[in-house]
Amino acid sequence: MTRWRITVDQDRCVGSATCTSIAPDFFTLDGEDRSCPAAAEVAPADRLADAAELCPTSAIAVVDAETGLSQVD
């Protein structure tokens, strides 16, 4: 079964809360309003790819956990 790995580059995150509004079950904001993945590996989901694509600073990476290939176009 395919799994996706999520990472957020905290240096790039500007806290626009785009990901937490589009995919609230996959991201949370820390005390400084920087986004963190709720879990490092998850089952594939369209809205996760949407969140990564819509991130204003492209801070979110979503890759196939096995192949390492990006799932965001």
Partner: peptide, 17 residues
């Protein structure tokens, strides 16, 4: 790096970026 604030930051970060 060039982390300018030209589009702002936080929840109102420019939506037209």
């Amino acid at each position: 790096p060039n982390r300018h604030l030209t589009f702002g930051s936080g929840p109102h970060y420019c939506v037209g970026f």
